[in-house]
């Protein structure tokens, strides 16, 4: 089994500060981290490797600093990591991102055929969830999104059973490998990294490729040029007016809420 996990470097939106003047994110204030969903994707690969054997590669497209998240992935249990980094990739929307990543995956699979690709459900910054399914299309392999469990991998029949979250429940799917999964956070808990992994990660140098290291690349499909979507404008939504403020002390305020609730009494006894 050769599993490739796609990992993205994102600003930590939990720590990030908002610039009160422009109402936008102050990127410098935010430490860059491994997209939390991608940590779960790497952990999923680790569990599969433990059960079925194999090797785990991680792949990221991003600035040179993104080597940090590849090291982080090695800490969780990846065996090796690839970073594709080039000015030509900059400004990519999801269509251009999936294009660049699929070209890198082509090269990786030439070195060692890929059985399974795992992505996060979405990245916490761009937050579209479109890159994974896009890659699957480009490689013409089945995508399974919103995965909450990989229940059964059969190396002989090359089929895998997967639980996929849907509205109000889940579905059990069987699909062919190679395939691409995008995972939800609830799929697993990230285990503490064993010491040897930490040591390996600290010393690890990822394999770094530029556009020129990839084959058959149509440069017009990369980066800003290859992106059909653009951000037209940013705006602060008009401030809503707000409603009625309830006065008095806490007792009075609670009483006014009770009155509102009593006016809607029918709601308490639905069904």
């Amino acid at each position: 089994m050769h599993i490739v996990v796609c990992v993205k470097q994102v600003p930590d939106t939990k720590i990030i500060k908002i610039n009160p003047k422009t109402n936008t994110l102050d990127r410098r204030s935010a430490p860059a981290i491994l997209n939390p969903y991608d940590a779960h994707a790497v952990q999923t690969a680790v569990s599969i490797k433990e059960a079925a054997g194999g090797e785990i590669s991680v792949l990221s497209m991003g600035p040179p600093q993104a080597v940090d998240i590849i090291k982080k992935s090695v800490e969780i249990g990846a065996d090796r990591g690839y970073l594709i980094t080039d000015r030509a990739f900059a400004g990519a929307d999801t269509l251009a991102t999936s294009y660049a990543l699929s070209k890198a995956l082509d090269r990786i699979s030439k070195e060692k055929p890929i059985d399974l690709i795992i992505c996060g459900k979405h990245a916490i910054d761009g937050d579209t969830g479109q890159v994974g399914p896009g890659i699957a299309r480009r490689l013409d392999i089945p995508p399974v999104t919103n995965v909450i469990e990989v229940s059964d991998i059969n190396k002989d029949t090359r089929r895998v059973k997967i639980k996929r979250k849907i509205i109000n429940g889940y579905e059990l799917i069987e699909t062919e490998m190679p395939c691409l999964l995008t995972v939800e956070k609830e799929i697993n808990d990230i285990a503490y990294s064993p010491l040897p992994n930490m040591i390996k990660a600290a010393r690890y140098t990822p394999i770094i490729w530029a556009v020129s290291d990839l084959e058959d690349v149509d440069r017009t499909q990369l980066g800003l040029k290859g992106s059909p979507t653009i951000v037209g404008k940013m705006f602060t939504p008009p401030k809503p007016e707000g409603g009625h403020m309830l006065d008095g002390n806490a007792d009075d305020q609670a009483k006014q809420i009770i009155d509102i609730l009593l006016q809607n009494k029918e709601l308490f006894s639905v069904n």
């Binding site: 600003p11 109402n23 936008t24 916490i124 937050d127 059909p228 979507t229 037209g232 940013m234 939504p237």
Partner: peptide, 18 residues
């Protein structure tokens, strides 16, 4: 338009040529 990450801000996304 969709909420842009961080801040009370919206981004309008356009697709002009496709």
């Amino acid at each position: 338009s969709r909420p842009a990450f961080g801040g009370n801000i919206m981004a309008t996304i356009l697709c002009k040529k496709h």
